[in-house]
Structure formats: C-alpha cells, structure tokens
Design a binder for these strands. Structure first.
Lengths: 216, 216
DNA sequence: TAGGATGCTGTACATGCGTTCAGTCGCCGA
DNA sequence: TCGGCGACTGAACGCATGTACAGCATCCTA
C-alpha cells in the first residue's frame, strides 16, 4: 500500500494533523504516541518511523503551525492597521485573523494558546511577531491621528497586544462567567464595543448607542 | 520520630508546600510523586499515606491555595476600589495583591496562573471571585465619578479584569520582548503609566510627564 | 523481471509511573 | 510496663509509556 489515506493526504500528513489536533487540546505531555497513531489510523511504530521520535513530531508540528500562522499574518500585512480601532472591528487582532482564515473548529488557536503560554522557542517567535504587528498598528493609529504614542510606545503596544491576547487566553473563563463566548459573533460585538469605547475615550466615556456602531 | 521536620512544620505540611512549589513550575502532570517526596525529604510511600493518592494531594493543594488567596482578597475587601485607577497605583489588581502579601519567590502566583488557565473547578472559583472584585471596583469607580458603567457593565468589568490578568499570564513573554519584567518595580511603573493613561483618556491621551504621577 | 528502496506492522523491551504492602520505630494512654 | 497506634520506610507490583527491531507488502528502477 502506498501511503495514501484520508482523501489524498499522505499518512505522514494525517499523523501530523492528528497530532496537532490532540496537542492543541491536551498538550504534548497529555497525549501518547499510541493515541496519535490510533487517531491517524496507523500503527505507533509508523509515527516513530516518520518523525524519529515523539519530540521530533512535536517539533515538526510546531514548525508547521508557525508556517501556517506566518502565512495568515503575511496576508494581513498590507492592510491598514487603523482598522483595529475602527467601527465594526472585531474584538481584537487575533480574533480578526482567526475568524477570517480559519474554519470553525480549527485546532490552531488552541495550539497557539499553548505555544504562547509555554516557554518554547516557537512560542517566543509567535509573541515577538505579534508584538511587531502590534507596534506597527500603533504607529498606524498615530499616523492616522487616532492615537498618540504615549510616553512609552513600546509599552503601549505591548499593553494593547496583551489585552488582545487576554480575551483569547481566558476565553473559556470569560464565557462561563459572562454567559457568552467573547469570540462568538455576539460576544465579539459586546466585547468590542466596550473595548473600543475605552480605547477611544477612556473609562469616563460612554460607548455609542447604536448596535456595534463606532465613535463618530 | 514524631512528624517534625523543616522547622516546626509537620511532614504533611512540608509535603504539601513542596508539591505546591513543584506544581506551580511544572504542573501536576509534570511532577512525579517520587520527586515531591525527595523535595520534602520523605519517602514516596509517605506522600500516599498522608494524601491517599497523587490526585488527593493535588486537590488538597488546590484547596490550600484557594484558602490563602481568599484570605488575601478578604483583607483587600474593605478598601476603596477607586485606588485601582489612581495615581501611584500598581500595574493592576493582582500585582498589587501579590506585591503586598507575598514574598519575592512565592510559588502562589505560578500556581494561580495554572489554575486560571486550566479547567479545574478551583480555577473557575478563582476567576469568578476576581470577576466579582472587578465588578465591585468598577462600581466604585462609577460612584467616584472616575468611570462610567458603559453600555454593558458586566463586559466592561470583564474587560478590565482580563487586561489585568494578561500582564500576569504573559509576564515572561512581555519581559523577554520589552526587556523589562512588567511585574518588577520598574516594569510596573512603566506599564501602569500607560495603562492609567489609556483608562483615563483613551488612546488619544498622553500620559502625564512626571515619573509615575497620575492624571491631574 | 530481478532487486532495492519505502511504507507499514506486530512484538518486544527497558524505563518510570502511581500505588500496595508488610514491617519498623517511637510515642502515649491504660 | 505494655499494648496499640500512627508516622514512616524499602521493596515490589502492575501498568503505560517511548522506542527498537525484524519482517512483510508494495512500488520504482534497471
């Protein structure tokens, strides 16, 4: 038999994808080689055959996620950063990217979450890249007159990025407490409205009245 | 021998404390019973003898952390919530609490981090409690005229809480990228200044000039 | 059409895990 | 003083893990 299973992906690709899916949910430590093999419909020995070891597989999945993510961010690069704080924007940069490029149940967000919270080299890269993006977006906002650099533009950009990531990292907790998933359409509208309101005028300012309408 | 080791803590307490320390760094899954026993200077069998099982130990550590944390929050309850957005405040509620009640190298923040990010019942409780605190603080700010409730006070409180937790959850990544630990004295001053500036007047507003001085 | 390379499997092995168990030591109430 | 009791240990058990290995089937090449 010649390595074709599950459509036309090679068995190698199927293993990689199943590993990605399982790693995203339970983390590499929480998943066994045998479980990955079963999910991919192959033997445990084949996993080792293709990737050398479990850690080799983990590294390859890391790299794969990095590449896919970079591809998504690359498509975004040319756009106007000022969209971020404009009417109708989503509840953040990441939600925007995910909502646009990933299907509903994609394991990528979960995997990236673990990457950001762990201390892998891949995680550092992702954060560094996001920070550069945030830094650039802030510059765009300043150029557009929508924001000022503040006394410390680096810290201000990091503050905005951290706030953005917070919704993503605490999604489940927020959903439980608020009763609405902040990354769903409904949740993004409510979260985004408050976020934009604060960013536009601080805590003293009221959000606009109309549904999901931006500051004049 | 009568169960006295490491000062006057019982062996049981020593085991609990060492487990807390190790769990905070590597997570319960990443620590073995034998490692906990060695760190506590006892046999692995004694760990099981006192706590029934590894999971029993984990549950007890969870409860212990919950109690200590609740004690810290209780002492804070009577204070004026408006302190949060006032000049000289720290870079957030949690940093404030930790800085005030915990010694430098305390494992508690790390443990709480894992609690908040995992999906344990204890984690849900902690977040719920913090949300109530945030909700109350927002009410205090509104009463003091420093903020408005917004169109959706629940979401606004969650937004403020999530932003606060973000610094805490992403501490390492931020420190690497910015070159300064956002929870150190220096980092808190810089982070807090930008945070307060945005909360006071939005992204269009500049932070004040003086070092760590608040809005007029 | 021979033969080597490649995809793939079942089995086996060493290791480390959580847990059990029989037994020792020292304290304390009767 | 003695008998029970709780703290505590070393050794062992069953199990799951990551990995190595020998072998089988299929394909590509010469």
């Amino acid at each position: 038999m010649r390595s074709v299973a599950e459509g036309d992906r090679t068995a190698r690709a199927v293993i990689r994808d199943e590993a990605l899916r399982l790693f995203a949910v339970r983390g590499p430590e929480g998943v066994t080689v045998r479980q990955i093999a079963e999910a991919a419909g192959v033997s445990a020995a084949l996993v080792v055959h293709h990737f050398g070891s479990k850690d080799g597989l983990r590294q390859e999945v890391d790299q794969y996620v990095l590449d896919v993510f970079e591809g998504m961010l690359g498509e975004l690069a040319g756009e106007d950063g000022a969209r971020l704080v404009e009417p109708g924007a989503s509840s953040g940069l990441l939600s925007e990217v995910f909502g646009r490029y990933l299907p509903e149940g994609s394991p990528l967000p979960g995997y990236l979450r673990r990457l950001l919270l762990g201390d892998s080299e891949a995680g550092r890269k992702v954060f560094q890249r996001l920070f550069e993006l945030s830094r650039g977006a802030l510059d765009g906002l300043v150029a557009g007159g929508v924001a000022v650099a503040g006394r410390d533009a680096e810290v201000r950009a990091a503050f905005l990025l951290a706030n953005d990531l917070a919704v993503f990292l605490l999604r489940d907790r927020i959903a439980e407490t608020l009763g609405v998933d902040p990354l769903s359409g409904d949740g993004m509208a409510r979260w985004g409205a408050e976020m934009l309101s604060v960013y536009a005028g601080g805590l003293r300012a009221s959000p606009p009245e109309g549904p999901a309408a931006g500051p004049s």
